[in-house]
Every structure is written in C-alpha cells, then in structure tokens.
Design a protein around this nucleic acid. Structure first.
Lengths: 167, 167
DNA sequence: GTGGCTGCAAATTCTTTGCACTATG
DNA sequence: CATAGTGCAAAGAATTTGCAGCCAC
C-alpha cells in the first residue's frame, strides 16, 4: 500500500476527516527522505499555491508522527525536523559535531536489538531513534594529514557543539 | 578519576574558571542517574540554599554536555532533560507511549555498532542516543489477559503519544 | 446539515542575551 | 587585578491555543 493510502487509512481508523491540507503535508513528506522543518514545509507548500497555515502544519505533523509514517528529530537547532520513514527498519543518523554534517546508515543490529528487547522486557517497539554524535572523517583527528588544516575547526578533544541556534 | 574531577579538568582544559555554581550543578547531576529538568535542578539547589539563577544552569548544562559527562534528552515534554553518563557504554531508553514509563537497558550491540561505524564511515563517535518508543508490558496487547482491562488506555494499534506538554 | 478542521493572531513556554557586579586564577 | 561568570529581567523563538467561518462525510 502506498504511503498516502496508509495515512488515509490511519485517519479513517480514528474517524478523522481526510482533508486537502493534511494530504498535502503528508505527500510533501512522502516525496522526499530529507529532514524538513515546519518552516520549510510551509514555504514549499505556499510556493505551490497551497492555502495552509502554520498551525495546521503542526497539527498534521502530530498525526503523521502518531501514524508511525513520520519520525521527529531534534538535531539541536532549536526547532524540530520531520522525516518520512519508509519501513520499520529504516536508517539511523551520524551527526558531526564540528561541521554538522548528517550521515545516514542502516543497521541490522538495531532490528535484532528490538527483537531482543521485545523478549527481555515484554516491550512492543513501534519506532526508534538512534543518533551517534562525533566527528566525521573531514573533521576528525586523522583529517589533518590529507588536507589543508587551516580551513578546519580547532578539533579539540572537547569540541563545541556548533550550530546551536542561529541567533 | 571522579566525575567532579573530570569536569574540573575539562574546565581547565578550556581555561574556564571553576566556579561554585558550575560545580553545584555538576555534582547534583553526578549524584543521581535520573533525568532531571532545568526546573528541577533549580528547585533542588535553591532548596539547599544555593544562590543560582536559571541562566547559569542553562549555561552550565551546555558545558556539561560538551564535556561528554552529561547527555541531553527530549522525551517530548516540551523541555529538555539531562542525565549523568557514567561511561561511554551507558544505558539506553525504552519509552512507553501509553503510560510514559521509562525503561533503561544496556546493550553490547550498540558498542559493536559504534566500532563498526568508526570503521565504515571513518567517523569518531563521542556519544550516542538510542530511544525505542512503543508499548510496555502493562500497556501492550498481551496485558489484558492478566489484569483488569478497565484501568488501562484503549491500546489502539495507533495510540496517541500521551503526555505531550502539560497544558 | 453537523462536527471537526482551518487560518489567523494572540498566548504560552522554554531558552538565550545584555548588563552591572562579583569572583576566579 | 584582569578576565570571565553570575543573576536578573527582558528578549527571542518555536509551538500551542481560541475562535469564527468552512469543509469532509
């Protein structure tokens, strides 16, 4: 079943109306695997001449997260980002604390772990979030040897988290 | 080395003064493995007659997170919680979407995974966060058979995230 | 037709910032 | 003693809420 259909079915299962705005936010997310912010969703939809308000975007995102089709993330920017999850065994994130680059990876271990948890704690997993923070290959200590050191950050053992709130 | 000492060393490595307030916030966190909010930190310190302002708590928490001794969490309450991390291979969280219970677990798989990532992506992990959302044994579908069903939530296939903001 | 949704703007809440004063090294 | 930290209160920002009109069912 396609993602929009799954969302429609979710809404029906809750006796909630399938509205134009809800489907617009949903299909926008389903059409990309990027991590989009509320502001970006609003801009893109309004660029497409869709009449929609910020409150509706927030309200729809709550529903999408509840449906399990979308995952919420806080990458420390001061606002949340949302991303479409194609399946339960989707990707995870590596976040570089120096340049804020995002690397995605998949891991079978995580699914094994969830099975194991279900058994050991009698827990029914619905979705998860795995985030690893550290230094990417361009910013790590090994990087200096193969590039010009000057264009990089100090890469101290304790590097400042970078990019926290744009003010 | 004790946690307070590690924090002192961290401050010195950055040429930052070791102040009374900073050490108070730090030792409060080090003395418990609970997930505390800024408000709670403030209340507990002020109950102990410590003169400290909210801004200083926020500023100190940033330092503690940077030092790697403390981890920040967003459990969807509308504010952040902070927790002391005794070692790099610390615990992870299961979060029940129905009753908001928090279950902690440890996993060797996670450490294996981090090693594997370091190799595959040339990434230097510093800390991580693993959160699994779902239904705990008291709220899951199997629970009905062994307890009085009336005191529990509807446990629909799609349960509402519960406890999002207290307003 | 009706109950729930929508958009707008105001309200709320967490977090950050500016500044005069104080304390650390 | 100089530099950086602190507390307070005000500012800043993301998210939520109230309500009149509108739309899915």
């Amino acid at each position: 079943m396609s993602a929009p259909d799954t969302f429609r079915e979710f809404l029906r299962s809750r006796d909630l109306p399938v509205t134009e705005q809800r489907m617009r936010v949903a299909t926008l997310l389903f059409s990309t695997h990027k991590h989009v912010s509320v502001e970006e969703i609003l801009e893109r939809l309004q660029a497409d001449r869709v009449e929609i308000g910020k409150a509706t975007v927030y309200r729809t995102l709550d529903l999408l997260v509840d449906s399990g089709l979308v995952r919420e993330h806080d990458f420390g920017e001061g606002f949340k980002r949302y991303e479409y999850l194609a399946g339960p065994a989707d990707h995870e994130h590596l976040i570089c604390e120096s340049c804020n680059k995002l690397i995605e990876f998949t891991s079978v271990e995580i699914e094994d772990l969830k099975r194991e948890l279900a058994r050991a704690h009698n827990f029914q997993p619905r979705f998860h979030r795995v985030e690893v923070y550290g230094l990417c290959e361009d910013c790590g200590v090994g990087a200096v040897e193969q590039g010009s050191p000057a264009d990089r950050l100090p890469k101290a053992a304790f590097s400042r988290g970078g990019g926290r709130r744009q003010t």
